[in-house]
Amino acid sequence: MIGLLYVAPALALVAVFFAIPLGMTIWMSLHDWPLMGQKRWVGFANYERMWGDSGFWGALSFTGTYTVAVTIGLLGLGMILALMVERPGRATAFYRTAYFLPVVIGFASASLLWAWLSNVDSGLFSPLMQNLGLTERRVNINADYGLAFWSVNVMVVWKMVGFFMVILMSGLQSIPRDYLEAARIDGAGALQRFRFITMPLVRRPFALALILCVSGSMLAFDQFYIILNGGPQNSTITAVYWIFNESFVSFRLGYGAALSVVLLGILLVLSAIQLRLLRDREDGS
């Protein structure tokens, strides 16, 4: 009984902020649930409707593309930065702080900043490119799918790379120097040491970073909503953006809930696959 008392606060938190909302979402997804007016039990009708909803699948496919691109950028650059600042040196503390600083900015603030920077008239990028002679006239970054897509990717990498750098750096620092020295004596060059010694030994922190990165990117919303409003031509609408539109623009709360449940399922499957692929086959210590 006493034990139950000790875990009660944790249980209460999990119940209030996870279990009950999850239960409610699933419950809602089984109803036709307008914002105002009577809700109506529809069983799995929302899920059936989803099959024919090309907008949702399009959004999901765009989210997948974005996730792949931004994950490669974040983890690739994060690893490079981590390797650069891992060992104690004269200026490494400064660089670590500098790279990490954007992480503490809110996503909405960073997006607003980026929206301004990429504005064709009053921003920085377009006028700068023109003044430097790189473009003949001002290019509206946000009006072209490719440019807009990569612009948001660059923003997210700038904002989040410090976070993944820290996770990967802690992993790199936990590798004893002896391993790398033994590998040097064994004749492994810098790239071979990275491939055969460092990478396998940062598996665990890498798996953590990968799962955080993929699940975070699959849930992307703020940046596309604030910077691009889903444009140009609704080509940058993510899954969560679509759910937001269904729920709070079209007020189909039940349908939005059903889409959320499906997205949760997709994330669970993706995380399980990643954990399995990066499973530590090392036995013992």
Binding site: P176, D178, E181, A182, P200
Partner: peptide, 14 residues
């Protein structure tokens, strides 16, 4: 033309 045995052995754990 050397080989070294480390105090920690430095065997690659994976």
């Amino acid at each position: 033309g050397i080989a070294m045995v480390f105090q920690s052995y430095a065997l690659y754990p994976h």
